[in-house]
Amino acid sequence: MRPLTEEETKTLFTKLANYIGKNLTQLIDRSDEDYCFRLHKDRVFYVSESAMRLAISVARPNLISLGTCFGKFSKTGKFKLHITALDYLAQYAKYKVWIKPNGEMPFLYGNHVVKAHLGRITEDTPEHQGVVVYNMSDIPLGFGVTARSTADTRKLDPTAILVFHQSDVGEYLRDEDTLF
């Protein structure tokens, strides 16, 4: 377990800022307790300072997880968000997409969101913007990246992809072995 280097922090922040924008400061500068990011076995954990200090005394091979796993760094230095980060992304998300009940299962099986399944979308969402996907009863299901801006979606046919799937809560079952 170690703090992130400057480069890693930059990569992480640019990725997170794609979803939550300026709300990122809310994650860093919290009023209740100091939270920090820690890297352990290529995974980035968002953890309170007190929990981090307790975890310091655990030897590296014995430490499995701490705090909330936000994602992991690939060997090429790119950062991949994990579904476990959804709690925080959903809380601070800037752009949101709601999908109809008949689109829930296809999304939870790892498919993209097509126009036919789209219930609502935040107005003025730009293209290639990170969005959090909710069902109609406002339960976060996952997140993805928009394929088109809101303005462009009007003319599309019902089978056109609107949101590229990145992660969904179905991964808790599908990737149970590798996720943690």
Partner: peptide, 21 residues
């Protein structure tokens, strides 16, 4: 950096990085 650096310092540096971004 050492893992047990003070959280206030860390917050300051990450806010600086964020401002840079």
């Amino acid at each position: 950096e050492p893992a047990e650096v003070s959280a206030a310092n860390e917050r300051k540096s990450s806010l600086a990085i964020l401002a840079g971004l």
